[in-house]
Design a protein around this nucleic acid. Structure first.
Lengths: 343, 343
DNA sequence: TTGAAAGCGCTAACAT
DNA sequence: ATGTTAGCGCTTTCAA
C-alpha cells in the first residue's frame, strides 16, 4: 500500500480512504490513486484489513472436510453469493482425524473476529456463538439450539423412504442408523419406526443397527445384517454413504441388489447416481440448503428481521436399487420353481 | 492471547513461544500455559498470525466459483491434505460476473504474502507468480507456462471421444468447442480433427462451432447446429455442460437423444450421470487431479525436487447418450420402412 | 527461562 | 482535502 501511496504522491491514509470509498477525498485524487492501483495491480491484504477493521466482506463456510455433502452446499452458496458483494471462503478445519470433535469451534475461533464477517457451519455438533458475530448452522447434529438453522425434514423423509419399501411389499425391513447422538440420525430412525407402526408392521429390533453414517463403519453393520439367518429383504440406510456401503457388502456376499435385496438411502448426493445399481434415495435439496443458509446469514448481518429456522422438504428419488418384494422361490429361474400355488 | 498470558501469569511472548513450540520455555510453564489455553478455548487468529509470521500451515485453493468441476478437485485435495498438518482454505474470488477476468490475480494478491503458504489455482488464465510463493495451476487456460501444472490429456481424450463416435458409424460429426483462447478447448478441437483425419473423414466446417463451455452459450450453438438442413448425426461437445445443454436443446426441438442424435461430452462431472439420458463422456480424473495438485504444492513448499508437470490420462465413460448410426429411415417404425435393400 | 518492545499492512480518529 | 498516528493480535529479536 505504501508503494501505491508513494507512486500517487499521497499518504497511506488517503489510499485507504480511496480503497474504502470514504468521503473527503478530492475527485482528482481518487482517480489518480485508482489509476496507480490498477497499474500496480495492488490488492489489500485480507489478513491485515481484517485485523484492523473487522469487516472484510468475506463470508465463511466452515466444514470438517470437503466431501459430497458439503460441496453440494458450497455450490448452492456460491450461486447465491453472486452479486451480493460478498466473497466466499470455505475452510476445512478437520485434521483428517474424522472423529475429531471441536473442529467447528476451533475453525470459528481462528477465523471469526477477523477475516470473515459471518459463517455458515456445516453439520456442527456444538457451537457457542460469539456475541455480535453471526453464524448459521446447516443440519446441526444436535438439532435446532438457539442458533439460526437450515435443515431438511429428516423425519418426513424417513417416513417417505419406509413407506416406499412398504409399498413394494417388503415387511422385513432393516435400518442402518447414524450415531444416536446426532439429531438427524435420531429423526430418521424415528420416521422409520413411525411408518412401520402406521403400517402395522412390527419392527424387528435385530434389524435396526447403528452404522455411523460412514462407509467403513456402515460396512460392518451391513455385514451383520446380511449374515442374519432371517435377513431383511430391504434396508433403509441412514444416508447414501451407508447405502452405497451396503450395496458393496451385499455384492461381496453374492447378494444381488435389487433382486435379492432392496436398498434405499438418504441425501441424494451426486455419487448416489453413479453406483451400480443407481441408488434409490431420499433427496435433501442440498444446493438449495446452501443457498438458503447463505441468504439467511446475509440477512442476519444486514439486520433483516426474519425467520431464522428453515426446514426444507425431502423427496423420494426412484432409481434402481429397490424392487417389489418377492419370496425367494419366485426369484429362481422359472424352470426350477416349485409348482405355482397361485400366491 | 493476552487473556491467556494473564491467566497463566506469564507474558505474551511466552504464550506465543508455547503455541509455536519454540525452545527456551520451562516444561512447567509450557504445561501451565497449555492448560489455560484449553480452558479458555483459545485459538490464534489466522489473520494476525499470518500478518506477522508469513507461515500459517494453511494452503489455498483459488477458484472462480464453486461449480462441479472445482468442487471435484476440492474433494481430491481434501483427501490428500489429511494428515499433512496443513488445513485447506478454498476461496471463490469470482464476483458472479462470469467473464470477469483477473480473479486469479486478485485472489492471489489478497491472500498471498499472508494467510496461505501456497496456492492451487483452478483454471487460471494468467498468473504472475510472486517470488518465494508457491503456486500450482490446475488445467490452466493458456497451457503450461513456466508454472507447475496439473492437467489431463485433453488431446488424447478428444481423440478417444471422436473415435468412439466414428466406431459407431457416425460420419457427420459436429463439434461444439470452448473459447479458442483456452488451451484445453484448442486441444480438444485438435484431437477431434486428428481423429477425423486419421479416419479419412473430412470435417465439415459448418459443423464446428464455438460454444464457450457454458450452458447458455452452448445452447445457442447447439441450436444452430441442429437446425442445419443437413444436421450432424453426432455431436462431440467440448465439455459436459455443453453436452447437457445440447441434449436439452435437442429435446426441445423434438430430436431424441440418442435415437436421432448421439452426444458425447468431456469431463465426467457427477452431473453428467444425472441427466436423461445419462451422458457418455470422457473422464478427467478430477479428484485425482486435485490430489496431485495439492501434493505437488506441498512438495514445492517442502523443497522437494520433482517433476512439476503432471498430465493425467483420460478415459471413455460409456453411458447412454450415443448409439450406432442408422440412416433416418432405419429409425422409422418397422411397418413404415421402405423395402429393405440389404444395406 | 522470561519479558519488553518493535513492527507486519492496514484503518480510523484526530490534526492540520 | 489530506496527513499523522495509534493500535488491531501476533511473532521475534534482544535484553534482563
Amino acid at each position: 500500500m505504501s508503494d501505491v501511496a508513494r507512486a500517487a504522491g499521497v499518504s497511506l491514509a488517503t489510499v485507504s480512504k480511496v480503497i474504502n470509498g470514504r468521503y473527503g477525498v478530492a475527485q482528482a485524487t481518487v482517480e489518480r490513486v485508482q489509476q496507480v492501483i490498477q497499474e500496480l495491480g495492488y490488492e489489500v491484504s485480507l489478513g491485515a484489513q481484517s485485523l484492523r477493521s473487522h469487516r472484510t466482506n468475506v463470508l465463511g463456510i466452515l466444514v470438517a472436510e470437503f466431501e459430497p455433502f458439503s460441496t453440494e452446499l458450497l455450490k448452492g452458496a456460491s450461486r447465491e453469493v453472486a452479486g451480493t458483494g460478498y466473497q466466499l471462503l470455505a475452510y476445512s478445519g478437520g485434521d483428517g482425524d474424522v472423529a475429531a470433535i471441536g473442529w467447528e469451534r476451533r475453525s470459528l475461533a481462528r477465523l471469526s473476529g477477523s477475516l470473515i464477517d459471518g459463517a455458515v457451519i456445516v453439520t456442527p455438533t456444538v457451537v457457542e456463538t460469539k456475541q455480535g458475530f453471526h453464524v448459521v448452522a446447516v443440519d446441526p447434529h444436535t438439532g435446532p439450539s438457539g442458533l439460526p438453522t437450515v435443515d431438511s425434514d429428516n423425519f418426513a423423509g424417513a417416513v417417505l423412504a419406509t413407506n416406499y419399501l412398504l409399498s413394494l411389499g417388503h415387511r422385513r425391513i432393516g435400518h442402518i442408523s447414524g450415531r444416536p447422538d446426532l439429531e438427524s440420525a435420531r429423526l430418521r430412525e424415528a420416521g422409520f419406526r413411525k411408518a412401520m407402526a402406521d403400517a402395522d408392521v412390527p419392527v424387528d429390533e435385530s434389524l435396526v443397527r447403528v452404522g455411523g453414517f460412514r462407509i467403513e463403519s456402515a460396512a460392518g453393520t451391513a455385514a451383520e445384517l446380511l449374515t442374519l439367518a432371517d435377513r431383511p429383504t430391504a434396508v433403509f440406510a441412514g444416508n447414501d454413504l451407508s447405502a452405497i456401503s451396503t450395496i458393496d457388502v451385499a455384492r461381496n456376499m453374492g447378494i444381488t441388489v435389487p433382486d435379492d435385496l432392496s436398498v434405499i438411502g438418504f441425501d441424494n448426493v451426486p455419487e448416489s447416481a453413479l453406483v451400480n445399481p443407481p441408488l434409490t434415495t431420499i433427496m435433501q435439496p442440498l444446493q438449495r440448503m446452501g443457498a438458503e443458509a447463505l441468504r439467511l446469514l446475509i440477512d442476519l448481518i444486514g439486520g433483516v428481521d426474519r425467520d431464522t429456522h428453515i426446514r426444507l422438504p425431502t423427496e423420494l428419488v426412484v432409481r434402481a436399487s429397490c424392487r417389489p418384494y418377492a419370496p425367494a422361490w419366485r426369484r429362481l429361474p422359472l424352470s426350477t420353481r416349485p409348482a405355482s400355488t397361485g400366491d
